[in-house]
Structure formats: C-alpha cells, structure tokens
C-alpha cells in the first residue's frame, strides 16, 4: 500500500512555488509587461505628438531606411564590437595572472578588479572627462613633457572617448567569467601537457586556451550587449555629432516625443541582444558548469 506517497513531493513543490512566486510576479509586472508594451507601441503611429493605436511596420522600415538611424545602429555595433575585442585582449592576461600566478593575493586582486564596476556610472564618466578633456590630465601631461604642442582634440567628445569609457566600464565585467574559467583549469593538466613535451606556448594553446573558451565567449557576449545598449557613456563622452542607438532612442522619446519610433529601435536592439544570447546559450551552460 501507499500511504500518501508523494505528499512530501507535493510539499516540496509548494515550497518551491512559494519561494519563487514573489520574484516571478515582480519581474512579470516590471520587466515582461514593459517589454510587451514597448513591442505593442512600436507598431503604433504618432500624430501631432500623440500616439495613435495602429498596426504599421513604418517605424521598423524607418530604422533600416532612415540614414541617421541606420548610421546610429552601425556605430553602435561597431563600437560594441571594438570594445568587446579590446576588453578581451586586455582582460585575458589579467584574468590569467590572477587565477594562476597571484598566489595568496588571488582573492584580493580579483575583488580589486571588480570593485570599480560598482561605482556609479556618472561618476566614472565624470572622471574620464577630467582625464580626456582639452585641459584634461592626459593632454596637460603630454604638453608638459613636450610630446605634443597642441592639446589632442579627438580625446574627448568623440567615438574614441566613448570607446575608452566603455572599455573602462566593462573590463571588470569581462575579467569575472574569464577568471572563473581559467581558475577551474587544474595546474596538473597544464603540467601534464608540459610533461608530454609541450613548450609553455604550446601547452597554453593546447590546454589553457580551449578550456578558457567558455569564459572568453560569455564575457564577450556580455560586453557586446552591454556596449550596444549603453547610454550614459556615449551621451557624456561621445560629443553628440555621431549618435549611438541608445542616444537616438532617447532623442525620439524625449525630444521628438515620437514614442513608437523610439520603441521600434528599442525592439531592434532587443532582438539583437536576445539573438546573441540564444546563440551563445550553450557557452553560458558550459561556463556556469550547471544548467542556467
């Protein structure tokens, strides 16, 4: 006989449901619903600065045909790609150093890399303005040691400045998954490769690099999607001659009051983000070592 078999199972289910429900409810109302609303109004029209319910693809067609919007999309993708590559190149050695060479300082050094990430973005950008401006620290230093005789104008209010700001913002973010992957590689595996007569370089390419690939890819995906949607950095460092996608969206919403147009660009951006995530899901699983 079976005296209430599965009642413990039911109890567990109830616990699970009760634990997860508040968060799910919250995220549904304040995350899913807003995204759906955005999707809905992206098919609406604007007349006399007022939204009119409709079902038109005009806003989407505009994203890909309107020169300004197309250029913004392109600039965003370019910048995000550049920032991702730069972060990968900069982050790899430091992640490797912390994971494999830092010895007892490992924990402290890792935290020290991550810590700037938690500083408010506006403050970080304010700092870069002090560094990059015409009278900024970098120009003044270069002038005073005589390396240049005129301040470098392209340092601030340019895509260069935006890129520097973004690399600064996302480097910590990239180090984290990379460190996790490299740290999980056992020294013995590398030693075994060397023992089998692989030189240090060979051992790196045959063992360390392939095993760190999940972290490298996950970091790249995060870096790219964050770079794509970033607003504060381009708005304050980028100058405003060449706009990025997020700036165009903000412009549509706040200055032109054309919400449907802004919503359509937002949705395009979302599609890129989620497509990237879907494609790289396999690597997220590998990097987390558990089903995400």
């Amino acid at each position: 006989m079976q005296a209430g078999a599965g009642s413990a199972e039911k109890r567990r289910r109830r616990f699970a449901a009760a634990g997860i429900a508040p968060l799910m409810l919250w995220q549904f109302v304040f995350f899913v619903v807003p995204v759906i609303l955005l999707l809905v109004i992206s098919f609406w029209r604007t007349r006399n600065y007022r939204m009119v319910p409709d079902f038109t693809f005009a806003n989407y067609i505009a994203v890909f045909t309107n020169g300004a919007m197309w250029r913004a999309l392109l600039l965003s993708v370019q910048t995000a790609a550049f920032v991702t590559i730069a972060c990968a190149v900069l982050a790899y050695p430091i992640a490797y150093f912390i994971a494999k060479k830092a010895g007892r300082l490992k924990g402290l050094l890792l935290i020290a890399v991550i810590a700037p990430f938690w500083i408010s973005i506006v403050m970080r950008v304010a700092a870069w303005r002090l560094l990059l401006g015409e009278n900024g620290v970098i120009n003044q230093s270069l002038l005073s040691i005589g390396l240049i005789d005129q301040p470098l104008g392209f340092l601030l209010y340019s895509p260069v400045a935006t890129s520097i700001g973004l690399v600064y913002a996302y480097l910590p973010l990239y180090v984290l998954p990379l460190y996790a992957s490299i740290d999980a590689i056992e020294d013995n595996w590398i030693a075994a490769a060397k023992d089998l007569n692989a030189g240090p370089m060979r051992a790196f390419w045959e063992v360390t690099f392939p095993l760190s690939l999940p972290g490298l890819i996950v970091g790249a995906v995060f870096c790219f999607i964050f770079g794509l949607g970033e607003f504060v950095t381009p708005a304050l460092l980028g100058g405003g001659k060449q706009l990025m996608m997020s700036q165009v969206i903000q412009d549509q919403f706040q200055r032109r009051l054309d919400w449907p147009a802004g919503a359509a660009i937002s949705i395009v951006m979302l599609v890129i983000v989620f497509a990237l995530l879907a494609v790289s899901m396999k690597w997220f699983r590998k990097a987390s070592g558990e089903k995400l």
């Binding site: 304040f30 995350f31 619903v33 807003p34 995204v35 609303l37 955005l38 995060f222 999607i225 964050f226 794509l228 949607g229 970033e230 607003f231 997020s246 969206i249 903000q250 919403f253 919400w259 802004g262 919503a263 937002s266 951006m269 979302l270 983000v273 989620f274 995530l277």
Partner: peptide
Amino acid sequence: VLPQLVLGLGL
C-alpha cells in the same frame, strides 16, 4: 541583459 535604457522606456 536588457539594455537599461529600454527597461526605462518600458517602465
């Protein structure tokens, strides 16, 4: 992963 700008507009 949602761009914060997009979340802001949705809200």
